[in-house]
Simulated scan of single mutants.
Amino acid sequence: MALLLSLLTALVLLSSGPARALGCDLLEDHVLLSKENLVLLREMNTISPLFCLKDRQHFRFPGAAVDGSQVQKAQALSVLHQMLQQISDLLATENSSVPWNTTLVDQLRIGLHRQLKDLDTCWEQEMGEEGPALATQGPTLALKGYFQGIRLYLKEKEYSDCAWEVVRVEILRSFSSTRALQEMLRNKDGDLRSP
């Protein structure tokens, strides 16, 4: 009987405590991956940004969407996921690797995929049924609109090397701005559902 009780206790502990912690502890790895992805984005530079000054564009990055002090913790997961998904989708565009080293692009895609997988694990454990509703709220919608503007710009510029360089710099800037959200999630003081 004591053995059965011990096994049941262990099973309960494994299915509730550590599993929940494991998913969101992955955010430590997420931050490391984010830094690695930023390095890859910097290394992808093949054209001097000065050469592409005529192609510069102000994309109106929705800063409030990624400002850790403005976004509720529950929205932070949604915003980070949306940002990574949009960058990943953008890099999957047919003409995305024209000016870049394909090895670097592939490494970046793998890094983004790993980050998305980590966030998905945390998302499922922390958000449950709230998740889909958050994907349609203000900050997430603002990011979708921002990336739609980038796609339209690339199409207008016919996916030129300079257009991709401008977009690379913009992605680098926007991706860097997610650090506040990552820090907020990493230093969270409890349930992500609390404002």
Rank of each mutant, 00 (worst) to 15 (best):
L3C: 03
A10S: 05
A10R: 01
S15Q: 08
R20A: 06
A21Q: 10
A21Y: 04
G23E: 02
C24H: 09
L27G: 07
E28V: 15
V31R: 15
V31S: 14
L33M: 14
S34R: 13
N37K: 13
N37T: 14
N37Q: 13
L38D: 08
L40N: 07
L40D: 10
L41Y: 07
L41P: 14
R42I: 09
N45C: 11
P49F: 09
L50E: 13
F51H: 11
C52G: 12
L53E: 14
R56V: 09
Q57F: 06
F59T: 03
F59L: 04
G63H: 06
S69R: 12
S69M: 02
Q70S: 02
V71Q: 01
V71N: 00
K73H: 13
L80F: 00
L80E: 00
Q82S: 07
L84Q: 04
I87Y: 01
S88N: 08
L91I: 04
N95G: 11
S96I: 05
N101Y: 11
T102A: 08
T103R: 12
V105L: 01
L108F: 04
R109C: 14
R109E: 12
R114T: 11
R114V: 14
R114G: 08
Q115N: 15
D118I: 13
D118R: 10
D118W: 12
D118E: 13
D120C: 10
C122Q: 13
E124G: 10
E126A: 09
G128K: 05
E129C: 04
E129W: 03
G131A: 15
G131H: 11
L134H: 08
A135P: 11
A135Y: 10
T136E: 04
G138Y: 02
L143Y: 00
L143P: 06
K144T: 11
K144D: 03
G145C: 05
G145L: 03
Y146N: 00
Y146A: 01
F147Q: 03
Q148C: 12
I150Q: 00
I150M: 00
L152F: 07
Y153G: 02
L154V: 04
Y159S: 06
A163L: 02
W164N: 02
W164A: 03
V166E: 05
R168K: 07
R168I: 08
V169Y: 05
V169F: 03
E170H: 10
L172K: 08
L172M: 08
R173L: 08
F175H: 11
S177G: 07
R179Q: 12
E183S: 11
L185A: 07
R193L: 06
S194G: 14
P195M: 08
